[in-house]
């Protein structure tokens, strides 16, 4: 579905991605995790044609994304990013923008079919109740849903999300991630999402990609990647890896400096 082969990307002075190779299979739900500045978002930008790699190739369906017509690519690949500008248009108008890649060459107005697809996208994401509200006047959770509805209106095969749960409380996080997993299963939509929250990533993703200093440090199921030695090395902090007692998925807890010190002194005393 999505292949990155030896991709290096850089901003002025230095590499943000350093020779990354990665393959995503159709129907997968993959989480990209890693510390700030490890290259997660850059990876997503490279995969979505927002950033041209200095070397290496990014392929979707076996074809270099830089050799595809942008409109055709946008019918396969949809992106939900946190940097998109929000303007005062209604949710329905916003979702309809997702039909643009499907417009014909001299088509200016959307058809009934476009409306139906946009409506279905809003139905799946539960946006219909607020479809006539302005994008600037809805809550953060509703806005995320609208962003995903717009992406679905593109009828993509591959959905890339950049930190879809940031700014959401835990209940809204669960609601959103449940939705994403449902879409992943019901539409056989391949999903790759950048996530800050290791626990949420472990709970929902089949496979995790752990990034560190512009390279892939570990790839695999949450059980393999969420190893405390690996995580402590990558995040450079003391961590405890436990297990969610209901789902059985690994989860991670931070340890504060005070506790670490107290523990060390107790160790010393007992010796």
């Amino acid at each position: 579905m999505l292949e990155l082969e030896n991709v290096s990307c850089g901003y002025a002075g230095g590499f943000a991605l350093d020779g990354i190779s990665l393959g995503i299979k159709p129907g997968e739900l993959v989480g990209i995790v890693g510390p700030n500045g490890s290259g997660k978002t850059t990876l997503l930008r490279a995969a979505s044609r927002s950033l041209r790699p200095r070397s290496g190739t990014v392929r979707i369906h076996g074809e270099d994304i830089w050799h595809q017509r942008p409109a055709l690519l946008a019918r396969t690949l949809a992106v939900v990013s946190q940097t998109a500008d929000i303007v005062p248009m209604t949710v329905a108008e916003y979702v309809l923008l997702g039909r643009i890649p499907h417009y014909g060459h001299f088509q200016f107005l959307e058809t009934h079919a476009d409306w139906d697809i946009a409506r279905r996208a809003m139905e799946m994401t539960e946006c219909l109740p607020f479809k006539d509200h302005l994008m600037t006047a809805i809550s953060g959770g509703e806005r995320q849903l609208a962003l995903i509805a717009r992406a679905l209106a593109q009828e993509p095969k591959l959905l890339l999300l950049d930190e879809p749960t940031s700014y959401l409380d835990i209940a809204h996080q669960v609601r959103l991630l449940d939705l994403i997993r449902r879409l992943n299963r019901e539409l056989t939509l391949t999903v790759v999402m950048v996530m800050h929250d290791l626990n949420a990533a472990s709970e929902y993703c089949e496979r995790l990609v752990l990034m560190s200093h512009g390279q892939v440090r570990a790839v695999g199921e949450p059980d393999e990647v969420m190893d405390y030695q690996v995580l402590e090395e990558v995040y450079e902090t003391v961590l405890v890896v436990g297990r969610n007692s209901i789902s059985g998925r690994p989860c991670v807890f931070p340890v504060s400096e005070d506790v670490q010190k107290r523990r060390q002194s107790r160790h010393a005393a007992s010796k």
Binding site: S50, P70, A74, A78, S81, T83, Y103
Partner: peptide, 24 residues
Amino acid sequence: AYRLAVPLNALALGEDGAAHLGID
């Protein structure tokens, strides 16, 4: 200009947002 009406609508989402909708 009317030929650019749809790309202009897409540009409301920012340059990256428009590019993701297949606009050159």
